[in-house]
């Protein structure tokens, strides 16, 4: 793993800090759905997210705030990070997406507090532009932190 990170460092400085994958081995099912206990990757610069990446414990989904219990782009989830319950928004999925909507190599989330304010102040990876079409207005605070849209 160390050699991999040193190789990747010149191309992906952000990835090194966050860890390239959510977990050392994949335990997700074939459909790559975000369900209960699926492991995610925090892509903002919040202190708790960074601490979780450093000890190598990815946050796990313990609830999806929709009826189907399967998380899609822009959905709110409840995760456990370092023994704490935090709310987060899904901003990138491994799963196959619609045409023109990007699919990312990791399942990405951005942490928010109970009022919907993001814990960090910057999102370090590109965010799908399709999220801007979300008319509910919950995501606007998260999207305002984004540095890049794809």
């Amino acid at each position: 793993m160390a050699t991999l990170l040193s190789n990747a460092s010149q191309f992906a400085p952000a990835a090194v800090r966050l860890g390239t994958t959510c977990c050392a081995f994949s335990t997700t099912s074939k459909l790559l759905e975000v369900r209960l206990l699926s492991r995610m990757r925090i892509v903002d610069n919040s202190a708790i997210g960074r601490a979780a990446a450093e000890i190598g414990k990815p946050p796990r989904v313990i609830h999806v705030y929709n009826k189907k219990q399967v998380g899609h782009l822009g959905d709110k989830v409840l995760v456990t990070v370092k023994g704490e319950m935090r709310r987060a928004y899904i901003v990138g999925l491994k799963q196959k997406q619609r045409p023109n909507v990007p699919r990312t190599d990791t399942n990405n989330i951005v942490l928010v507090d109970d009022n919907g304010n993001p814990l960090g102040n910057r999102v370090l990876v590109p965010i799908p532009s399709a999220l801007r079409a979300n008319k509910k207005g919950d995501l606007t605070k998260v999207l305002s932190l984004a540095t890049k849209f794809v």
Binding site: A15, G92, Q97, N100, R103, T104, T106
Partner: peptide
């Protein structure tokens, strides 16, 4: 493509 260390893939329909 890999953007900011994150692998991103987009599927486009040619006649969309």
């Amino acid at each position: 493509n890999v953007v900011d260390g994150l692998g991103v893939e987009v599927m486009y329909e040619m006649y969309n």
